[in-house]
Design a protein around this nucleic acid. Structure first.
Length: 833
RNA sequence: GGGCGGUUAGCUCAGCUGGUCAGAGCGCCUCCCUUACAAGGAGGAGGUCAUAGGUUCGAGUCCUAUACCGCCCACCA
């Protein structure tokens, strides 16, 4: 609408681990595992599933009215995107930013794959803390002489070292026991040797800074292959890391007597055996957090394994610079802190997954020399030794690796001359929920800058999450996600209502709950505009729009016209300012307020005076109605594209520019139509009308019954006189019995309305209960007096000198008005006795 | 253990850079099927803006604590 070339490119990623899990779940229903099916056929199944869900997601997107360019739709497994993935991988590989190594990773025994730190969800568990002891080799005892589980395994041992653990099954992989360097309890044992129960391995007792002397017994078992801290300690002390589990977290041959048992089965058994051997000191209840798989919720097993990593430090540094220097701005600002914190503490990114669904890592291992090689074309012989015994890496890449290239891989990159890439990269805005800042945005920033030299976008706009009634975030991987299909909401309330609600019930970065009452309200709003448009069109004749001109300050406009045009232009200014600062919700609410209250309730109602009067020329009022409606539609279009477009299409051609609202020019504020005087006068008129309606309601005057009124106004008499017809129509006054003077003698039996310097009397004769009227006026007087006192106090104090002049002046004006009101109220009370 | 967010009318939530900001919708009360709209119109009632201090002429709006609720990071066995 602003005339700028805009690309909104739709597409999807292949969601590697999530898709693989879903497909495996489907296979399970058929009694099959992926291994039984084989890689090739499994991938075929994944493609089938992907196609079904692609169509479903695309349909949802279309019905949401997302106006993107479907001719450019992309999928991360498309040939060109796969080419981009390979290019990026090879470049990083050659630059030494990708390496293979054996490190401790998060292993999901159900997915049978490594996952990244971000994919591990910590969950609080009521667990146990087992305090156990290992015998120490000394002069009296130099090792077990009986079988494990004989009950005599530790017979003869005289010295023990005690420690606490939450995971007894990992004992089998222990390669040391550690204490804090300055712990007096165990100081003498440091340097000695303990014997690992069950296995009989001799392990050193060491001292390390990482051990907290304040926790447990001050000593800790060290399992470098199954615990992050232990792994680091292991590296520091050059300890072996013994993996005691299989890919599915069963105990392997390293687990001695427990080989073949599930890790939890092993835990139960080994605790029992410890007890039997007199090595279990005590058991405590203990709540701690356990890492679980984001996708399948299985407990993660930290495990040393050979994986591929991206060296993230240099990439993170560049990404942080882009944000520091303002090349990319994150909205809301506070999210930048989270971004920096994460980037500063980033660890190398494990990008290999032992899955079948995804981009297979373009690395070939040589059976001859053991080296590996990577390149844009598949090698036929090893460049290191010439051997033809090459085998491609089985692992696939983390989905986020390919998703991280999205801002440019979709635009033709690596061809930097590709027209779309030249035109649209770097992009303007990355809009997403804040939960994906690290997963995706951070990776896009790192890979984008590394690959293209430019940050992929200038603004990252982070909105909140939609949560359900339990406060859980609604995401497509939820078990009962079908309960939250946007299409159901669209069927019930309409797309416009859903969009409007999503945009107006949130504020940047804060979560929202989708309240059905809001959806209903939004639907009603859409209906309201529809009805308003119907009214305007019903009252528009061909003559009215012949030679239509948008209302301008030079036209012969009445107060209500000048007022609504002034309000409209103020609204345009506000909406522009709010859009600029990403306050979309506030913009939507203001448009709603304007359309519903100011346009429908006042402008349209006031216009009826003229439209229904045969004597009056309709051209100008109709022009104003049409213009304000048409402009409002344009403002509202981003929020409610369907209803606004439908109405807009029905408007007479003379009143609009362009073939469709979606490409009509965005409204521009016209400063010449801002009119403080009109706004002030209209405010008086409106207050007066509200006051009269209020009294009518209180005195139960028959609705629609015309009543007399007397208005005394020293300064607004002319304005009100000119608006007599509007006043009479909206307040249901009898024009024959309406008097407007500078001042007048108040009638005895009348209800009184005081608005600033203007006083209105409604001589309601027998209807007025004098006692009630007195009470009501007294109450009003008390209120006014209180406000006067407050205002005087304020003006007498330091406020008068310290506050800005215009603020002080406003307070003085307010005081003057209050004083006038007080005089009127007092006079009135006097006449009432 | 750090860090962040929330706490405003009965309910769900807005309130940008401190000065008509005490608001909206729903609900509630009273009227009204008036020729755009009952998915509506008119008029009402309803909140010491979590608590305690502080800064300021002036604070839902800034600062400091506290209390709940939620989230994010973190190697406490």
């Amino acid at each position: 609408m602003r005339g700028e070339e805009t690309l909104y490119l739709p597409g999807m990623d292949h969601a590697g681990i999530a898709t693989q899990n879903v497909v495996e779940r489907e296979l399970a229903k058929e009694g099959l595992t992926r291994h039984e099916l084989g890689r090739e056929r499994f991938v075929e199944r994944a493609w089938e599933w992907t196609k079904i869900y692609h169509d479903r997601i695309a349909d949802q997107t279309r019905r949401l009215g997302v106006s993107c360019d479907w001719t450019r739709e992309r999928f991360t497994l498309d040939e060109d995107l796969s080419n981009a993935v390979r290019t990026a991988f090879v470049r990083l590989y050659r630059k030494g930013l990708i390496y293979q190594g054996s490190y401790l990773v998060n292993w999901c025994p159900r997915c049978e794959s490594a996952i990244s730190d971000l994919e591990v969800i910590p969950v609080e568990r009521e667990g146990r803390l087992w305090v156990i002891r290992y015998p120490v080799v000394n002069g009296d005892w130099d090792g077990p002489r009986y079988e494990w589980t004989s009950g005599r395994w530790a017979e003869g041992a005289t010295e023990f070292i005690e420690m606490a653990t939450t995971r007894p099954e990992t004992i089998l992989g222990d390669t040391a026991v550690a204490t804090s360097p300055e712990d007096p309890r165990w100081r003498d044992l440091v340097g000695e040797t303990a014997v690992l129960p069950a296995i009989g391995r001799r392990i050193p007792i060491i001292a390390d800074e990482a051990v907290d002397p304040g926790f447990g017994t001050g000593a800790v078992k060290i399992t470098p292959a199954h615990d992050p801290t232990d792994n680091e300690i292991g590296i520091r002390h050059d300890l072996p890391a013994i993996d005691v589990m299989t890919d599915t977290a069963e105990m392997n041959e390293q687990a001695g007597p427990y080989a073949g048992q599930d890790r939890y089965e092993c835990r139960r058994n080994i605790v029992e055996d410890f007890e039997k051997e007199g090595l279990l000191v005590r058991v405590e209840a203990y709540t701690h957090s356990v890492g679980t798989c984001e996708r399948c919720h299985t407990d993660i097993e930290p495990r040393v394994s050979t994986q591929w990593f991206v060296r993230t430090k240099p990439l993170a540094e560049a990404a942080m610079n882009a944000v520091r220097e303002g090349e990319t701005v994150i909205v809301p600002k506070r999210e930048e802190e989270r971004f920096f914190h994460w980037m500063e503490n980033i660890r190398d990114w494990c990008i290999s997954r032992q899955l079948w669904w995804g981009h297979r890592i373009p690395v070939w291992h040589c059976g001859g020399c053991g080296e590996h090689t990577s390149g844009m074309t598949d090698p036929t012989e090893c460049p290191h030794c010439g051997s033809e015994e090459l085998h491609q890496e089985e692992d696939v890449l983390d989905t986020w690796f390919s998703s991280g290239l999205w801002p440019f891989s979709t635009l033709g990159w690596p061809d930097t001359d590709a027209p779309d890439y030249r035109r649209f990269y770097p992009t303007d805005m990355r809009e997403t929920a804040y939960d994906i800042l690290f997963f995706w945005v951070a990776r896009e920033m790192m890979l984008g800058i590394e690959m293209t030299g430019q940050s992929p976008y200038s603004t990252v706009y982070l909105h909140g999450l939609v949560r359900n009634e339990n406060g859980e975030k609604i995401s497509k991987s939820m078990e009962d996600i079908d309960e939250y299909d946007p299409l159901d909401i669209i069927d019930a309330y309409g797309t416009d209502a859903l969009r409007y609600t999503l945009m107006t019930s949130s504020t940047p970065g804060l979560d929202m709950n989708l309240d059905p009452r809001r959806l209903e309200g939004a639907r009603n709003f859409a209906n309201k505009i529809w009805q308003a448009a119907r009214f305007v069109l019903m009252n528009t004749s061909l003559e009215d729009v012949a030679g239509f001109e948008a209302p301008s300050a030079s036209m012969d406009l009445r107060l209500a016209d000048r007022w609504i045009l002034s309000r409209l232009n103020r609204l345009i200014e506000n909406v522009d300012r709010l859009f600029e600062s990403h306050q979309y919700g506030e913009a939507g609410r203001q448009i709603n307020d304007f359309v519903w209250s100011e346009y429908c309730d006042w402008t349209i109602e006031a216009s009826k005076v003229r439209l229904y009067d045969e004597e009056v020329e309709n051209r100008v009022p109709v022009a104003v109605l049409l213009h304000v409606l048409e402009t409002s539609l344009r403002l509202l279009h981003p929020f409610m594209p369907f209803v606004t477009e439908a109405i807009w299409q029905a408007l007479p051609g003379e009143t609009k520019e362009g073939d469709a609202l979606i490409v009509a020019p965005w409204p521009e504020a016209d400063g010449t139509l801002l009119d403080d005087e009109a706004e002030e006068s209209m405010a008086l008129l409106m207050d007066l009308i509200r006051g009269i309606r209020n009294r009518r309601a209180e005195y139960r005057v028959t609705p629609g019954k015309r009543i007399p009124a007397m208005i005394a106004s020293p300064d607004a008499g002319d304005v009100l006189a000119k608006q007599q017809d509007v006043l009479c129509a909206l307040a249901k006054l009898d024009p024959e019995r309406l008097a407007i003077e500078e001042s007048m003698e108040p009638p005895s039996q009348a209800a009184t309305i005081v608005v600033g310097r203007t006083t209105c009397y409604l001589p309601l004769a027998e209807m007025v209960d004098l006692e009630e009227e007195r009470e009501r006026l007294s109450e009003e007087l008390r209120d006014v007096e209180g406000r006067i006192a407050h205002s005087k106090e304020l003006l007498a104090g330091p406020f008068a000198e310290r506050a800005p002049e215009h603020v002080v002046q406003r307070e003085r004006d307010k005081l003057e008005d209050l004083k006038t009101e007080r005089v009127e109220l007092e006079r009135r009370l006097e006449t009432l006795g």
